[in-house]
Write a protein that binds this DNA or RNA. Sequence first.
DNA 1: CGGATCTGCGTCCTTCGGATACTGTTTCCT
DNA 2: AGGAAACAGTATCCGAAGGACGCAGATCCG
Lengths: 227, 227
Amino acid sequence: MSTESATTTLLWDGRTPAARGPAATLSIEAIAAAGVAIADEHGIGAVSMQAVAESLGFTKMALYRHVRGKDELLAVMVEAAVEEVPRLDPRQPWRERITVFADALADVWRRHPWVPWVTRGRRLMGPREVAWVECALEPLVDTSLTPTERLDAVFLLFGHLRNTHSLDTAGTQPWHDPALGERLRQSAEHYPALADLSSVGASEDNGRSFGLERILDGIERLHESRA
Amino acid sequence: MSTESATTTLLWDGRTPAARGPAATLSIEAIAAAGVAIADEHGIGAVSMQAVAESLGFTKMALYRHVRGKDELLAVMVEAAVEEVPRLDPRQPWRERITVFADALADVWRRHPWVPWVTRGRRLMGPREVAWVECALEPLVDTSLTPTERLDAVFLLFGHLRNTHSLDTAGTQPWHDPALGERLRQSAEHYPALADLSSVGASEDNGRSFGLERILDGIERLHESRA
DNA sequence: CGGATCTGCGTCCTTCGGATACTGTTTCCT
DNA sequence: AGGAAACAGTATCCGAAGGACGCAGATCCG
């Protein structure tokens, strides 16, 4: 019986309505939806207690009756924004299913570009976000990977998709400052490989499909080595 | 002739000392070093203009004579924290060299745990950080990958190392809240693959070596397919 | 009906990044 | 030599941020 954080209980069980006192006008769902709307429209930087409350017609402090703080606000926002997992066809080969999964995840992240930025670091996950992990894990059950390896593979996949989803979530590539490309070309003796590259240019999708294929190839090789 | 941002000029050329006026007591190097020290000791959250200035015995506003704002402070901090790239033995096979590189990067990130957290998203890179990209790129010149593919491979590598370096930079794994593992076990019908896993546990290194091997395997397969 | 309880509000505090204006110092140019 | 220009560091002020605390009114249970 491990003691659970209040935020985890909120994410998984919701709030039990109060027995006494006036009925709540606000709800966690409304708060989360308002936060998501602001983040979608004006970016995650525009999400403040004040802004969320104002968009609902309440004062800032009213939010704290439903949410313990900004971290918990973000947690419920993520849980609201992350939609249902895709239904993967079990008859398809595992590699195909992973690709479908990756596209579905990209769709959600396209609708809510702030999600891959927020869902990093130590934090608490809700049932829907966990469902996405489960969903990615499931195709790998068909492989010869051990359970631990499957999990490692899923996080390898998630990390790569996050890193290549947009430039805002990636470790930036240097030549996105065009002036820097010029510098690299000028000091070609220090950066021969990069200078060579600046004329070629980077790939369209930030290397998403390249990395995905490499990862799946790597998994496949491990899988086949045990067949 | 593309116009270059002032921050990029600062990072690559440093500051040209003023012709007139009193000599500066502060220096960018001192500011960067102070910021790095605070971040190393108390975390990146403790780095504020106030804190950095105070640790140097100056007022907050004095920093703005040397640094245009917080973003630029972080940029020079990263550039100061990122050390010289490792010298890779060109006689070693490319895969070996990449592994050595990855370990060297991990060493730097261990000394400055905030660096992998800060070096994300659109930002400006300095010469030393670019040198690390160059360093990772160089072994791949021995492979049959195209220049663009080499670059994609490097960012695949960087992303994975960042994601697995520590839990603070990773997309968190759900069962780090021990209570959540219990929940997953209880609702095993919703999360069969995860529930199965929670008894096994996650890997020690957040899947770093697993992912690294898979990535290198994937690159190797592509390389060999063209031999 | 009265106390307990809950919701939402008003006020206050700290910290943050940053703009602006000022003081004193150094150097170049006439 | 002397004034003007440029520069370094400071003092003050501001708005926005997250959040603590106490209060008023509404609601329900005994």
